[in-house]
């Protein structure tokens, strides 16, 4: 496996942003009401991630160290605006379904995390591949969670009827509480199987895989420990 395919494998499997690093929980919970919404959000984020990694890697020697974060944020926010306009113009159905969560891609920790931890230290091409891998990992995870919730909550996948009509849909799964339940079961399974995940400590030891030391939960909790 050469270093480019290794980045893609790494993003999809080894350091999957959702299943392993537990990054970007807001969109994970909010837009996974159906598989198609998950796919749309995943692909939008992937587009931003690839372009942001590529551009920031090109600019990494130009941006002065002291304004590094604001510089990165401007690049990411511009790209998000472009994606926002493209979606509005070409796929209005996805645009209206995702709504405010498209501009909120700016504050998704995966993007700034990869910019900080990878694009700032590596060449443009490999950074773009890192973006593709992380983006695909994010897309696959969102699509799987979306498909699961759609199947239980509406009996369909991608809008196609899968379960027999005698199945009474458990509509709570496509409502807000269902998102929390699905994520809690996912993290409980990871705990049970001792799979490497930011929520059970295995990934925390590896540390420094992203800008905010691996995951938001830990990052926010870490400051709390210092505060007490």
């Amino acid at each position: 496996m050469n270093k480019y395919t290794e980045r893609i494998y790494n993003g999809i499997w080894k350091e999957n942003p959702i299943f392993v690093q537990m990054l970007g929980l807001c969109p994970t919970l909010a837009v996974t009401t159906s598989a198609i919404n998950g796919l749309g959000m995943g692909l939008s984020t992937t587009a931003v991630l690839v372009a942001a990694n590529f551009l920031i890697s090109i600019l990494r020697n130009v941006i002065p160290g002291r304004v590094r974060l604001p510089g990165e944020i401007v690049v990411v926010a511009s790209l998000v605006t472009v994606v926002d306009m493209l979606l509005e113009g070409f796929v209005p159905s996805i645009y209206s379904a995702l709504g405010i969560y498209i501009p909120l891609i700016v504050v998704n920790c995966i993007i700034l995390g990869r910019a900080e931890s990878f694009a700032m230290k590596n060449k443009p091409l490999i950074s773009a591949f890192d973006g593709i891998g992380m983006g695909l990992g994010f897309t696959i995870a969102l699509m799987l969670i979306g498909a699961f919730r759609e199947l239980l909550g509406a009996g369909t996948i991608f809008g196609a009827q899968v379960l027999p009509s005698s199945f009474q849909p458990i509509s709570i799964f496509i409502l807000a509480p269902g998102a929390f339940f699905v994520l809690s079961i996912l993290t409980a399974l990871q705990n049970k199987l001792k799979a490497p995940s930011a929520t059970n400590g295995a990934a925390q030891k590896k540390g420094q895989i992203t800008g905010c030391s691996g995951d938001c939960l830990h990052c926010a909790g870490h400051d709390q420990v210092k505060a007490e």
Binding site: L25, C26, L29, A30, L104, C109, A176, A179, C216, L217, H218, C219, A220, G221, D223, Q224
Partner: peptide
């Protein structure tokens, strides 16, 4: 689902 990170973390 906005601000979930701090909601769980703090």
């Amino acid at each position: 689902f906005l601000g979930i990170c701090s909601f769980v973390g703090v």
